[in-house]
Design a protein around this nucleic acid. Structure first.
Length: 339
DNA sequence: GAGGCGTGGGG
DNA sequence: TCCCCAAGCCT
């Protein structure tokens, strides 16, 4: 805790009333200024998202948070609406086979999230009477709910004071306070401490602060080309003050072409398209003299996309084994289907 | 702690 | 075109 004050606002804006401090407890310091600036900006500019609406439910917030893990808002929106219409409560989802969740997940990516959401619904029904628990600790115990999602649901669904740290907030803090272009590749303890120290003491303000920092990172303080002209706190930004230095490291892109992940995705696309189990041999390679397509055109097309990858039999075997192990697929009598 | 895990849009 | 990356989680 011997680091310099995290807020590096221009000296002219530092006005410390007698007896005030520079902690997150509020007051008239530079940090309190940031709190109000961002909260005001959020109240004016926040996107009108359904999981933020007045009629939102904790379940809807949880579903949105899980869907938004590594998936952009624009792609989540239609799927989230379908889920809420079909499964307005955890019990509604828990009553269906997990494969239905996977199918309804569509192409959001990382389908294990759908499986975990289904499992979370079952836990909510079995252990919490069908209602979302309202503490970070209990939320954190749900499948697929990590520290970020637990804090986000606690804050945005239940109005609790929680330290929310996602990639947007990390980037905003790194620039605004750290003077760096990007946060570290992985979340550090120092970042978590900084985020906790920045959180307003006032509960309502803390919720607004979390939401505002996330929103700022999502629509203004973006990773690629930040729109600093639209930033309400650009004047206090340490990164700008430092002359916008470039990142000190080059992010490593994820391999994709030729990976198991690519094959898994293509196999899952077949299973989602299929209303009936699909013979495993059909995944291996095109069947030249086959009597006909195994099912509708969508399945044939998905199989064609899988075959176009030119995957070797060993890798396909490995990919399918992985899907079976993850519970994303079930094999019976030589045929594959969703669970 | 590093790596695995989908998908599609935008620079 | 290619490459990054988008409200992470789990092992």
């Amino acid at each position: 805790m011997s680091r310099k004050a995290p807020v590096t606002a221009p000296a002219a804006t530092r006005r410390r009333a007698p007896g005030s401090d520079e902690t997150a407890s509020g007051g008239t310091g530079a940090l309190a200024h940031l709190h109000t600036e961002l909260a005001d900006w959020f109240s004016r500019e926040a996107r009108d998202l359904p999981w933020r609406a007045g009629d939102r439910t904790p379940w809807g917030v949880l579903v949105s948070e899980v869907m938004l893990q590594q998936t952009p808002v624009v792609r989540v929106l239609p799927v989230w609406r379908e889920w809420m219409e079909r499964w307005p409560n955890p019990a509604d989802l828990a009553a269906e086979p997990s494969g239905e969740a996977v199918r309804a997940w569509g192409r959001l990516g990382y389908p294990r999230r759908a499986l975990r959401l289904h499992a979370a619904a079952a836990v909510i029904v079995a252990e919490h009477g069908g209602e979302l628990p309202d503490t970070e600790e209990a939320l954190r115990a749900l499948p697929g709910v990590g520290s970020y999602t637990a804090a986000a649901v606690a804050a945005f669904a239940f109005g609790r004071r929680a330290t929310v740290v996602d990639t947007n907030i990390r980037r905003v803090h790194a620039r605004l306070l750290g003077g760096e272009a990007l946060p570290a590749p992985a979340l550090t303890a120092a970042e978590q401490r900084r985020a906790a120290a920045l959180l307003p003491e006032d509960t309502a303000l803390s919720v607004a602060w979390n939401a505002a920092a996330m929103e700022l990172g999502a629509v203004v303080c973006t990773a690629r080309s930040p729109r600093c002209a639209a930033c309400p706190v650009a004047a206090e930004c340490a990164w700008r003050a430092a002359g916008e230095p470039p990142p000190t490291y080059t992010p490593r892109g994820q391999a994709w072409h030729g990976t198991d992940r690519q094959v898994r995705g293509a196999v899952m696309a077949v299973l989602r398209a299929a209303e009936h189990p699909v013979a495993r041999v059909l995944f291996e390679a095109p069947v030249p003299g086959a009597a006909g397509p195994p099912a509708g055109g969508a399945v044939t097309a998905a199989l064609g996309r899988l075959h176009a990858l030119g995957t070797g039999p060993d890798q396909l075997e490995r990919a399918v084994a992985g899907l079976l192990a993850d519970g994303l697929a079930v094999e019976e009598a030589g045929r594959l289907r969703l669970p």
